[in-house]
């Protein structure tokens, strides 16, 4: 464990460490971690950088063009071919990551703390922030509902981890889910290639969201979407007469649950299938967490399935 990282014991600082689960982190660490793919970092690190730089690992030759540093001219090749070739090296870099946490009102469901979506999302965000910073990656954080609520640009070091964990702990649910707006808001801050980890229940119109994600992908950013849902959302509660109150809009609808159960289940599944299909077809890592499953098993498994690899 790197120095200066916050203690994992909840008793030490309940506010900061409530969402850091040592057993989960231990499990993730035991497996080791590496993200498949190429990331652009601001230091030389553990990941392959797409920028052909000047490092020790040879990558390829390319013909010399005016302005190239003559230091990297391969004279041996010149000797054999009488042509100028510049040697290219693979630059080792760290990873830029932005953890985007949905804190709309719908995330505060169900009321049961252990199964609360926001609690899960916070735990996921904290775990990821901890592991990524510990691995030397540059991690930023943002929370959003209708708009961006808080934003911490990516940086490295334990200081940032404390800052991020403290920000995560402060997040409270409110407002409507407007992922589209929030992603648009962070666009200008992403100067270099970044891995954006979106943690949300995605309960909003997904079409504009998918459009934004595609535009991000075009800009060579990468996405991992971690959807957090409760079992209670898949199947409606038992009983007959209910007044359903929309947690985001406060809209009320009187419902005989038995009459609409099948219809709702079908519609909800269709919606989720749509999201999953859309994201997977765009090459976005995706996993749906069920808050009613044991967190200790679900989070490592989810991260693997979302495309993270543990070595």
């Amino acid at each position: 464990m790197p120095k200066n990282l916050p203690a994992l014991s909840p008793e030490a600082d309940p506010l900061k460490n409530l969402y850091l689960k040592p057993e989960i982190i231990a499990r993730v660490e035991r497996l080791g971690y590496s993200r498949r793919g190429i990331f652009e970092g601001n230091i030389s690190g553990k990941y392959h950088s797409p920028f052909r730089g000047y490092s020790s690992d040879f990558h390829a030759f390319r013909p010399y063009t005016q302005g190239d540093d003559l230091r990297y001219l391969d004279w041996k090749v010149y000797g054999r071919t009488e042509k100028f070739f510049i040697k290219q090296f693979e630059e080792e870099t760290n990873m830029r990551v932005i953890i985007a946490l949905d804190c709309s009102a719908s995330m505060n469901f169900p009321k049961e703390f252990e199964k609360n979506k926001l609690y899960w999302a916070k735990t996921l965000a904290s775990t990821l922030a901890y592991i990524l910073i510990k691995r030397g990656d540059s991690v930023g954080f943002l929370s959003f509902s209708e708009r961006l609520i808080s934003f911490i640009p990516d940086a490295r070091g334990s200081k940032y981890l404390t800052k991020i964990l403290s920000e995560i702990a402060k997040v409270e649910s409110s407002g409507k889910t407007k992922i589209f707006n929030s992603l648009n808001d962070i666009g200008p801050f992403l100067k270099r290639r970044t891995l954006i980890i979106l943690i949300s229940d995605l309960l909003s119109d997904f079409l504009p969201v998918s459009k934004v994600i595609r535009s991000f992908l075009k800009q060579k950013h990468r996405f991992v979407v971690l959807q957090v849902l409760s079992s209670l959302e898949f199947s409606l509660p038992q009983g007959e007469a209910f007044v359903f109150v929309d947690m985001e809009t406060q809209e009320r609808v009187r419902i005989d649950v038995e009459k609409v159960r099948t219809y709702y289940k079908k519609e909800f599944e269709k919606f989720n299938h749509g999201i999953e299909g859309n994201l997977k077809s765009s090459g976005v890592g995706f996993f749906r967490f069920n808050t009613h499953k044991p967190m200790i098993r679900e989070i490592p498994l989810g991260l693997i399935k979302a495309g993270f690899t543990f070595r």
Binding site: S106, M107, F109, K111, K117, D201, L203, S230, E233, P237, G239, E240, A241, F242, V243, F244, V245, D246, M247, E248, E251, V253, R254, I255, D256, K259, V260, Y263, Y264, E267, F268, F271
Partner: peptide, 23 residues
């Protein structure tokens, strides 16, 4: 008359149309 239970739900997006009709 059946007393309706007030139930806070993340979204009634998928219920609204059918629920209104059935209600």
């Amino acid at each position: 008359r059946k007393k309706a239970i007030v139930y806070f739900f993340p979204t009634i997006l998928f219920l609204k149309k059918q629920a209104l009709l059935k209600t």
